[in-house]
Amino acid sequence: MLKQRNIELLKDYALIAPALLILVALVIYPILSGIYLSFFDYNLLRETQPYVGIDNYIVLLSDPRFLKILWNTVLFAVLANAFSTLLGLASALLLNSSGRFVGLLRALGYLPWITPAVVFVVIWSWMFSGSFSPINAVLMQWGIIKSPISFLGDEKMIFLGLSLPVWSMLVVRIWASYAFKMTMFLAALQNIPQDRIDAARVDGANSWHVFRYVTMPGIMPVLLVVVSLSMIWNLSHFEVNYLLTAGGPKDLTNVITVYLYQLAFVQWKFGHAAAAGIYTLLLASVAAIVYLRLTRSEER
């Protein structure tokens, strides 16, 4: 009997095996070699690659530039995540009806999600340029500003403690990431039984009350999971920061992934780059633990 059970179990695992095989070969192996690399002074341009223990980690932590970039990483991840969640929620609420054109509008709302970064970064960089920005052109024409705004360059312009280039970068990060959340929230919203909303209305609840006491609780679990999952992705976000500014001006928009790409492919210090990557891994682990906590309560 026990033997039979084991065979059954083995057959269950056989279903998972292809996925595990692919993941181990193509994701886990490179990750492990990344971790391995981080203990070596691994410079691709040299023949010898001495073992240095945790030196790479110490060198990074004692570099003020790295600490600043580490802080940027967290800052961008938190703010981009928060704002894109708000925008995703707002747009989902706006588009959660069944009008005639809603399908089209939703599909248009998805656009930023499906556009390759190579494309939209060129366009956004144009939006932000001093001489060619349509935003500047309009503002100047209306006489609101006298000189063009340098959206990605004017570090002296500060709003709420953050400089203009940081805000500009955030705008693009939000633009590029809200659509995923919008999708998730739309799904969650459609999950809320209509009769609960109707019942609340019959009880005399106004729109705000419906939102506060029916809608919010309905999407809360999804929201928490989406936020923690997207936190993991945000911490290791690379494309927008790299393509739009490469971390400039003066490291204001530099994040760990961009920094480690530069360490690896500009300075060829793969050991340092790997160590920087491990720090990201540690940061993301915090978000992962939150995620696991949240999902545990959902288990049956």
């Binding site: 960089s125 144009w126 932000f128 340029s129 001093g130 001489s131 060619f132 340098s150 959206f151 990605l152 360059g153 004017d154 570090e155 280039p165 739009l244 500014t245 490469a246 400039g248 001006p249």
Partner: peptide
């Protein structure tokens, strides 16, 4: 100075614009 400050500054485009 934008050439040293602003990552969106494109000197080729500025040349094309007659700047």
């Amino acid at each position: 100075i934008a050439q040293f400050q602003d990552p969106s500054f494109d000197v080729a485009a500025e040349l094309a614009a007659g700047h």
